[in-house]
Nucleic acid binder design. Structure first.
Length: 421
RNA sequence: GGAGGGGUAGCGUAAUUGGUAACGCAGCGGUCUUGAAAACCGCCGCCCUAAAGGCUUGCAGGUUCGAGUCCUGUCCCCUCCGCCA
């Protein structure tokens, strides 16, 4: 959520920034609404001040045993006017709130212009793309042959875009999760095991709701929602809290399953592990003072990249252009792994600075040392990494001529010494 | 799911028959001190550029001139019962 004061002060500037994300909003309308709301509110407060004064007078008179019926009658009429004005304020409040909840975050100045993912700016490439002396198989074919992925039966027991992992497949997934969690823990993230379902307010807090309800799986009839990423429970841990400054910065990591309806992705990436309704992910979240978020973001990027370097899987990092960025992000790096079956790099992690966008929605504040007033924190998140896509990349990049998959050195201790699947 | 009890500032507590939310601890700033402690003074929920003012007793309503207090709904916590991995 953007600060209404910012929209009030310089709507053209905010509109200009949002245009970079290719979002068009009429903030003039918002300001008209905001002005009306504040006018009504001011009127209500004047009436309330009058009522408070009169009520005190009633109390004083009654205490002295005097008659107060005249003042009571007068005050009753003031009360009715308050009630009427409040009834006209409620829809204004609601309209303004709903509107503000659907305005995206503004991008930071260094975010490049662009109209599509093709305009993302490559930061660097690491690792050599493997050259095969045989026809490499896509991970879905190889995985089925090896008996570690079972897409057919997943379709039977649940539906499309689900996978059953078996034997070494299940073991490899668990090994990756443990390795990634240890990697995060070594970098001072506190390991958390949160619920996989959250309530409506949490989904609003991180920015999924109310705009993107179609992308979520709801748990009916309980009004809970399956998390699309651990970012939701982790960031909402501190919803509605005022943190003491010495608690910051906060670093959390969590392994969870993630659930996405993938509305609008029909027909895309239908094969393999790339786009699933349920996938495993190790997530990183940081909560920092506003001045620290830019630096924290660079560190988080390294926290994710070093995993691929240790796994020895080739990747590249891109800085997303305005058009390719998400709703709440002020700046985003994507890490993409080399995927032989796609013949290109495929997103495996997204590291984002949300600035104060989520903090304002979720009301996460802190009190700077020595300051009287509270301030909003900055929140950041990043995948480290998406487990399914990592496994797909690993299977494809590490496949051998004989149709097996070598286990990267760093994972061997997590695979009870297994060298090859 | 049923019955009973409870929810007040970071923590712990208070508030006559309904009369407009108080105190302690912790924290922050200051005085004093070589420094610290102690003591003393101020701040110590939120909104508003500020003041005036308004809001705030889990949340949402209702009754009333006025609600922490009375009524209705709802969420959460505790105890017991039931069910259950």
């Amino acid at each position: 959520m953007l600060d209404i004061r910012r929209i009030r002060q310089d709507p053209e500037e905010v509109e200009r920034l949002l245009a970079k994300k290719h979002v068009v909003v009429d903030l003039n309308q918002v300001n008209i609404l905001d002005q009306r709301r504040r006018d009504v509110l001011g009127e209500i407060e004047r009436f309330k001040a009058e009522r408070n004064k009169s009520s005190e007078l009633v109390a004083a008179k009654k205490k002295r045993g005097e008659d107060a019926t005249e003042i009571i009658e007068k005050t009753r009429i003031v009360g009715e006017q308050i009630k009427q004005l409040e009834a006209s304020l409620a829809p204004l409040d609601e309209e303004l709130r709903l509107f503000l909840l659907t305005v995206p975050n503004t991008p930071l100045p260094e975010v490049p212009d662009g109209v599509s993912a093709d305009d993302n700016v490559e930061i660097h490439r690491v690792g050599l793309v493997p050259q095969f002396h045989f026809e490499p198989l896509p991970h879905w074919d190889l995985g089925e042959r090896l008996g570690i992925f079972d897409f057919e039966r997943a379709r039977k027991i649940t539906g499309a875009r689900f996978t059953v992992l078996k034997g070494m497949g299940a073991q490899l997934s668990r090994a990756l999760i443990n390795y990634m969690l240890d990697h995060a823990r070594a970098r001072n993230y506190l390991e958390v095991a949160p619920p996989y379902m959250v309530n409506y307010d949490s989904m609003v807090g991180t920015g999924q709701f109310p705009k993107f309800m179609d992308d979520a799986f709801g748990v009916t009839p309980h009004n809970y929602f399956l998390i699309p990423t651990a970012e939701v429970p982790l960031t909402n841990l501190h919803r509605g809290e005022i943190l003491s400054a010495d608690l910051l910065p906060i670093r959390y990591t969590a392994y969870t399953a993630s659930f996405r309806a993938e509305a609008g992705a029909a027909g895309r990436d239908t094969r393999g592990l790339i786009r699933q309704h349920q996938f495993d992910k190790v997530e990183l979240v940081r909560i920092v003072e506003p001045g620290d978020s830019a630096h924290a973001m660079e560190e988080m990027l390294r926290d994710a990249e070093t995993i691929l370097e240790e796994l020895e899987i080739p990747y590249r990092t891109v800085l997303l252009c305005g058009a390719d960025m998400g709703f709440g992000q002020a700046k985003t790096y994507d890490i993409e792994v080399w995927m032989p079956s796609y013949g290109r790099y495929v997103e495996i992690s997204s590291v984002s600075n949300m600035t104060d966008f989520q903090a304002r929605r979720a009301e996460i504040r802190y009190r700077p040392k020595g300051a009287k007033k509270t301030e909003l924190v900055h929140t950041l998140n990043g995948s480290a990494l998406a487990v399914g896509r990592t496994m797909a990349a690993l299977v494809e990049n590490y496949q051998t001529m004989s149709g097996h998959v070598r286990i990267p050195d760093v994972l061997k201790s997590y695979m009870s010494g297994v060298e090859e699947i």
